[in-house]
Design a protein around this nucleic acid. Structure first.
Lengths: 155, 155
DNA sequence: ATTTTTGATGAAAACGATTTTCAATAAGGG
DNA sequence: CCCTTATTGAAAATCGTTTTCATCAAAAAT
């Protein structure tokens, strides 16, 4: 693999080094694609994008890198029911970046929304309390998603 | 396949006949397992259960039958993120049976809840309206799920 | 700068859930 | 009871993802 001095954002290189891992071109490019363009990426999509700049990359490395980045809380991984996982950049801290999703069942586009979340969170807290008590369940996470047709796919 | 006269609930046999399909032992048993015991069943679990009464059934047939039943709105199909789809009986009409889920991330048990839904639905309506307007999205469905540890798995 | 250590890589194979193919079987109308 | 055609089981194919393993390269040791 060709060497590129100073590749990748320093914070990321540092975070890798901190846990005994190494910065590589593949990792730089995967991070670059997902963070620069935003949105929800499948492994295959990331692979195609990275490939254009670095044709010898393998799909396997993309999978491994996405998994690594998700483990480091740099990306969040989510499955929306079309059979493949998608990864999205986490902006800021994981808790600050909380949002919910709108998923188009025709083209599989995913839209983040953050506007209506406050009321939702408030209600969720109440529901969580009720559920925890009734079912003796320790709730750690939740998912709210709306499914339907995006603007383009309605026509 | 051995023949059994009058097998299966008549409403189901009728519904099948109505669209040119046939009632079979496999179909009767799949329906019987999921409806009688309730809960959320994976194909493999249904297969094991049906097999006990009817050892020559194939896993493939179970998959096909579950798919058929879901298509007829007899079962609902859902994926909870453990890599396999689960099927649940729909009681009454699909809309009357609306409920949300509590999923244990340790043992994968799924609990239905219907108690706290009213407030949730009310909020969802408001959110839906806002989202539809902002993103020109035609919302047809939603998912609300809580993840955590069930009573047993907390210990 | 060179060597050494060890993490990262790509290719191919393995994987698990699900679907398809296809020849054999059986449901149910005639 | 026969005939048409839906249904079945077994095996193979698919799809997304993970594992294996020998090779390569990044960072550490020299």
């Amino acid at each position: 693999m060709p060497r590129r001095d100073g590749c990748g954002p320093p914070w990321f290189t540092g975070q890798l080094r901190g846990c005994g891992r190494r910065m590589t071109v593949a990792r730089e490019l995967v991070l670059d694609v997902v963070s620069r363009k935003g949105g929800h990426w499948s492994a295959e999509e990331v692979f195609e994008a990275v490939r254009k700049q670095y044709p010898r990359v393998g799909l396997v490395t993309v999978y491994r890198t996405l998994d690594l980045l998700a483990g480091m809380n740099v990306l969040s991984r989510h499955e929306f029911g079309d059979g493949r996982a998608r990864y999205e950049m986490i902006r800021g801290s994981k808790s600050d970046d909380h949002h919910h999703h709108l998923v188009c069942t025709s083209c599989n586009r995913v839209i983040d929304y953050r506007d209506f979340i406050d009321d939702e969170i408030q209600l969720l807290k109440k529901t969580e309390a009720g559920l925890s008590k009734k079912f003796h369940f320790k709730i750690t996470d939740h998912v709210i998603e709306f499914y339907g047709l995006c603007e383009k796919c309605q026509k």
